[in-house]
Design a protein around this nucleic acid. Structure first.
Length: 495
RNA sequence: GCCCCCAUCGUCUAGAGGCCUAGGACAACACCCUUUCACGGUGUAGACAGCGAUUCGAAUUCGCUUGGGGGUACCA
């Protein structure tokens, strides 16, 4: 092995920071990709840099317009807006690799001319065979370099036969070292890397090549991505070197794992940001939660918005280990955000989760009131469907034996009769009055029947809502309105 | 197989040789508050993977082992 050591150092420190997020539209925006996007975004914000979105759709078969749209929508929903990208444009476009296909061959040719790359005529079958042999011999696979020294005549002959070559990068043996932003010094022995393809025989670039060319042309200064890319990094650095281009700084983030410690995938439930949103997670909570996977606030305050996180963000303090995605804390955090959120905004978000009910039954202020009084215990907007139900649909007392038992109780009936009798004179616009009257009722039954306050309230609650749990009683009474309250009391009394 | 990364409570983490009898958050449990349900408050339990080395002193440095993750394509 050649002992030539190469340490890649910072490119010009005076350059403005430019980072990018480069998703491949072969699936909806993954929560892990969202976190990578977040960290790039935070780094750009913190350093006053620029953040670009590039769509890596070189694999046309696996890429789709629907996924691309999902990625756009999800990123926007999260508020991770890009300074340059396919839709907004920018100085270094186009920002979709499929629209850049004419760019890559020139650079590939340049590398061939300079002796850094060569044409390879091996078929997939040839390559498969090499793989198999390596497997049998139990030695690590490396391309055989069969095509490295083909003469011009041989190449012409193969081309005449209609064989389209791929282009391989010639990997020289040396020790390659780079300083990772989050992991520190990383060393590789390039003699272990075989000559890898940079252009496919169909004329499109491979991932490793397209990334380098684009990052170079787009003047990306810092590449922050998942650690599943660590092993690509030496290959990419080799290409930068061959191109004579400045090498960006690399930072590799630990992965997000499922609770079973395997890669977070669909079988674990939601993985796409859009799935989480559909379940009733707030994008603010999602972002905050995912930021805490690997990053910790210096003041210990975990609930923070993106701007606050950005101000406190230091890339080199990110944890380099993987983290497991557990729902408990996300749920808790989501509940925090639900309860902090502006009620009008929250109502807008809540409507899609409760639109199976006749929402026209209530005015907008009443609807907001309903959300206001039901938001407290929930951690997911989807829970609203159940928690809000009795405001729209009359209770079915026979659904639960527990409810029936309460309503059939003699004391309960007395409570309901007295309440029914008095509620007719309640001023439903007067919250305080209802509150006080209920207090009087509790006192009365405590004195006369020895009922616990709880028992008095339960009778009323079950009659009005068919539940033993729910929103604040005074508010529930107010929202239901006098007619409805009387109607439900009469029905409950018949049980 | 080979290469690489990682390793503190169940989970997310603080911790950059003495401040650590290891701190916080979620979850759990207990109690308190209370007008039901909840919110909230207080408290309890709970971790430095193992072994060596360096050092007066190690969660913190080094090595090995073990465990987990990633990569090993004309996928990205």
């Amino acid at each position: 092995m050649d002992t030539n050591t190469n340490t890649t150092d910072t490119n010009n420190i005076n350059d403005k920071v430019r980072v990018r997020i480069a998703p491949s539209p072969s699936g909806n925006l993954h929560i892990g990709t969202a976190r990578t996007a977040l960290f790039n975004y935070l780094f750009a914000k913190k350093t006053g840099g620029e953040y670009v979105l590039r769509i890596e759709d070189t694999d046309l078969d696996r890429s789709s317009e629907t996924f691309k749209q999902n990625i756009f929508d999800s990123l926007k929903a999260l508020g991770l807006n890009w300074d340059e990208g396919p839709d907004v444009g920018g100085k270094y476009g186009p920002y979709k690799q499929s629209e850049r296909f004419d760019i890559y061959p020139k650079f590939a040719q340049m590398l061939i001319d300079k002796g850094y790359a060569y044409e390879c005529f091996c078929s997939n079958e040839d390559l498969d065979k090499e793989h198999e042999i390596a497997l049998q011999k139990k030695i690590p696979y490396k391309y055989s370099r069969k095509c490295l020294n083909l003469t011009k005549e041989q190449k012409d002959e193969l081309k005449a036969k209609g064989i389209k070559p791929s282009i391989r990068f010639k990997v020289e043996s040396k020790e390659l070292v780079f300083n990772d932003l989050v992991k520190g010094e990383l060393k590789f022995d390039t003699s272990l890397i075989g000559d890898f393809a940079i252009m496919k025989s169909n004329g499109t670039p491979t991932y490793n090549f397209a990334v380098v060319i684009d990052d170079m042309l787009m003047k990306i200064t810092h590449v922050i991505r998942g650690e599943d890319h660590i092993s690509n990094t030496p290959k990419q650095i080799l290409i930068y070197e061959a191109l004579g281009a400045p090498i960006p700084k690399f930072g590799h983030l630990g992965m997000i794992l499922a609770p079973d410690r395997s890669k977070l995938s669909k079988r674990h439930g939601a993985t796409a940001v859009s799935d989480f949103i559909k379940q009733g997670y707030l994008t603010e909570a999602l972002l905050n939660f995912v930021a805490l996977l690997g990053w910790a606030p210096s003041d210990g305050v975990e609930i923070k918005n993106v701007d606050e996180i950005a101000a406190d963000f230091r890339i080199n303090e990110i944890s380099s280990s993987n983290s497991i995605f557990e729902y408990e804390k996300l749920n808790w955090m989501n509940g925090q955000y639900i309860n902090k959120m502006d009620i009008s905004k929250l109502t807008d978000l809540a409507i899609p989760f409760i639109d199976m009910y006749d929402l026209k039954k209530y005015s907008r202020p009443q609807l907001e009131h309903i959300i206001e009084v039901t938001r407290e215990p929930i951690t997911l907007l989807a829970q609203l469907e159940n928690d809000v139900k009795y405001f729209f649909i009359e209770p079915n007392y026979t659904e639960s034996p527990e409810i029936l038992e309460i309503l059939k109780n003699e004391n309960s009936k007395k409570v309901l009769e007295k309440f029914l009798n008095e509620v007719k004179d309640y001023d439903f616009g007067n919250h305080e009055q209802i509150h006080d009257k209920l207090g009087d009722l509790r006192s009365y039954f405590k004195e006369t029947l020895g009922l616990k306050p709880k028992e008095t309230m339960w009778a009323i609650r079950t009659a009005l809502t068919g539940r033993t749990k729910g929103a604040d009683m005074v508010a529930t009474i107010e929202i239901l309105g006098k007619d409805e309250v009387i109607k439900r009391l009469n029905q409950a009394l018949k049980v």
